[in-house]
Write a protein that binds this DNA or RNA. Sequence first.
DNA 1: CCGGTCTGATTGTCTGATAAATTACCAGCC
DNA 2: GGCTGGTAATTTATCAGACAATCAGACCGG
Lengths: 224, 224
Amino acid sequence: MQTLRRPKLRDQAAEQIKRYIVSNRLGPGDRLPTETQLAESLGVSRLSVREATKALEFLGIVESKTGVGLSVGRIDMERVTEHLGFHTGLLDVDPQQLIDSRVILETGVLPQVARNMARDPAIATELRALAERFRVARDLKSWIELDIRFHRTLLEASGLQPLVAFGDLLHLFFQRFRESVKRAEWQVGIESHRRLVEWLAAGRVADASRELRQHIESHKERLP
Amino acid sequence: MQTLRRPKLRDQAAEQIKRYIVSNRLGPGDRLPTETQLAESLGVSRLSVREATKALEFLGIVESKTGVGLSVGRIDMERVTEHLGFHTGLLDVDPQQLIDSRVILETGVLPQVARNMARDPAIATELRALAERFRVARDLKSWIELDIRFHRTLLEASGLQPLVAFGDLLHLFFQRFRESVKRAEWQVGIESHRRLVEWLAAGRVADASRELRQHIESHKERLP
DNA sequence: CCGGTCTGATTGTCTGATAAATTACCAGCC
DNA sequence: GGCTGGTAATTTATCAGACAATCAGACCGG
């Protein structure tokens, strides 16, 4: 049986507003009618319009400024991951798949990274500096923080913003079992990061790939 | 200069509610306090709480049922992409980066796909069938639909759900210049898809990679 | 031309009320 | 006992009206 449900006014309102945007071919920054006008033309109270616009605002689809009005917003992936981020642990993704995804993502960018490195020495410098700092990491927390930072920098070095955003998302889900890193394993990690940078700096992408894959896949051993 | 802004009550409320969820380790389906209780404990009116929860509901973070109350929702990427989908064309992601990201993502899964293919012949069958259907695509719309379906199936064949979701997201942003595919280019695309499947079925991942990379990067020629 | 002020428009927030949906409970019947 | 039906309580959904906060632009004096 199909559970039938009266569609909520605010959802309809949101739908109409979205339709209004596309059918009028509005782009970021373009003005929308005021709340009162929207309420009138949609035949609902201002409150319902309000709940709709506030929800859309959360997604970045519209912007509202006090004393000014509504306008079409500028959406980006980071905004989405920001709101979704906290949801870690609610979303049950298979850890195995998470690891495999990371391997593909991060080894995938290595050729690109190596190319950029050859052009801009600053990249290698930054990664080396990060790799060095692993030595002085005292507690697990700062070690993990560094690790995240290192891998993010690696992705950034590819210059591909969408992949960075996706990497952030994966990391959030990853944290769950990240904390199970044993102290003994730090040492391995430290060396691994260093070697990775050197392979890349030398332009030996295949070796870097192998190194990185092993590094990430080492998490698999800690899975239940 | 930092533009200072009075934080809006509903945003703070939303933040608090999110914090409540994590700090109490609530999972999907768990109950939340009623709107009235939330309003009291947060020291704001019920309206502000309402706008916050409605926004969170849009994102799928909470669920509300009339006569029952609020509960933690089950978030998934599809829900987000659904709302974001209409926004196509508003986004300003560098198209070049979009293409490069796709190349990395899709070529990255090929080894995995080839492995799964060797184990399960049904995968090759499905991809072949899709590749064949390109021949009979009459108009641009159905051609694009097929193309999306093909690439999605390819990602699915890797068995890595996070990458499928990410692929969907990329495709949304992609559609903008997808429509500029010229009729003459269909033919190339048709053959390209077919060859890709055959390389994969033969386990020749490197050749498949090259094929796919060319296929996707052909979009670059149409960039401004 | 410049700076300050005033004003109208618009969103932000509150209060209080009613409608609709769901659940819990209880009486009554077989 | 177990089931049925109805009723009350709880909770969200929606409305109306009001006032405060904020901002853009007009207006004005120097």
